[in-house]
Design a binder for these strands. Structure first.
Length: 106
DNA sequence: AAGGTGACTGATG
DNA sequence: GCATCAGCCACCT
């Protein structure tokens, strides 16, 4: 059985350029709908280690939510460079760029 | 083995 | 829309 963490990491790798995903969505796809905090924890602890496109992961409202200010700025820069549309400085337009891999239920 | 820790989320006032 | 609150869960000490 594939561990939850590895599952999430694989999913993040599948996020296409120019599109984004939410913590919750990843948790759902990884099989634990309510483990969004754990998804965040994974990003926090092993984004560099597994070479993840961590910048394509946002919270449920499409906001950039990082613990550090530098991180926020960096994420915004990376997303802008991929052509992701922003509604405001730190909020992307989920309607336009949310990743739809399969059917996601709410 | 028990308790702590998040880059979270939805409900509520 | 903003602030609080209380669930949530896999991983780390």
């Amino acid at each position: 059985m594939i561990p939850f963490t590895q599952r999430v990491i694989e999913l993040i790798h599948e996020i296409p350029r120019g599109q984004v995903c939410t913590y919750r969505q990843l948790a759902i796809m990884a099989g634990s709908p309510n483990a969004s905090r754990q998804v965040a924890w994974i990003l926090h602890s092993s984004s560099a280690k597994y070479d993840l496109p961590w910048h394509r992961v946002l919270n449920s409202k499409g906001n950039i939510v990082l613990s550090t200010e530098e991180g926020q700025l960096e994420q915004r820069t990376l997303l802008l460079r991929e052509g992701v549309p922003f509604l405001s400085d730190f909020q992307v337009d989920l309607d336009q760029c949310l990743w739809h891999p399969h059917s996601i239920k709410k």
